[in-house]
Amino acid sequence: MSGLALAGVAVDRGGRRVLEAIDLGFAPGHLHAVIGPNGAGKSTLLQAAAGLIAPRAGTVALDGVALAAIGRRALARRRAYLPQRQAVDWPITVEHLVALGLTPALPAFGAMPATCAAAVTRAIADGELAHLAQRPATALSGGELARAMLARALVGDPELLIVDEPTAGLDPRHALGAMARLRTVAGRGRIVIMAVHELDFALRFADRVIALKAGRVLWQAAADMVTAAQLSELYEVEVHLHRGANLALAFTGRTA
């Protein structure tokens, strides 16, 4: 089967059960949004899906092959992962930052092959970063850094892209830009999974929404079928959802 499949996945962290009995399939060509209250296990689910933490039980498989059997470097070439908090510790240039995305494809020593250099140039152009290419990554604004990191994740053209909170800390214009980019990647037949707090982004841009609560999947639905009642149940607040020409969402302080 094609796509990413989690079957019976359970994850413990620091002796605490964080995820339990997760059965999920992620099909190529779709943008999957994982939503849920704080502490629901969204980041852990994304890390397990990326093969960065080994589940205590269950399997994660990409195109029918368990991630653990794919091999560290081979998996790194096929999947890209961006964590929630992104920082660069040294003032390397944006160009070098983007090129780091090719780490698993590079020879251990020696110069970068010409094909890789071309891929870096393309990723920089796609991310509208050409004017920043020689800027130290530590001197970027939040929105610019997010764009550079996304270019870093996309430079190797991974078939699986997992992004934790792609809009965190971004103003509406940059957040919309990030969403549009993820949509484009999904449109190219890739599997894109994002955890997101902004519900309106999840409902407007994603194909499918997965609701996580207390380490379990509470419900999952096509984004245009999600109801106010489902969101109320998930967040335990009253939700008003209006689907018209523009999507409108409002929360009231009363708990449902």
């Binding site: 992104q86 660069v88 510790d89 390397i92 780091l100 780490t103 990191m149």
Partner: peptide, 8 residues
């Protein structure tokens, strides 16, 4: 080099 992006 890749560690400049953090361990994860």
């Amino acid at each position: 080099d890749a560690l400049a992006l953090g361990e994860l």
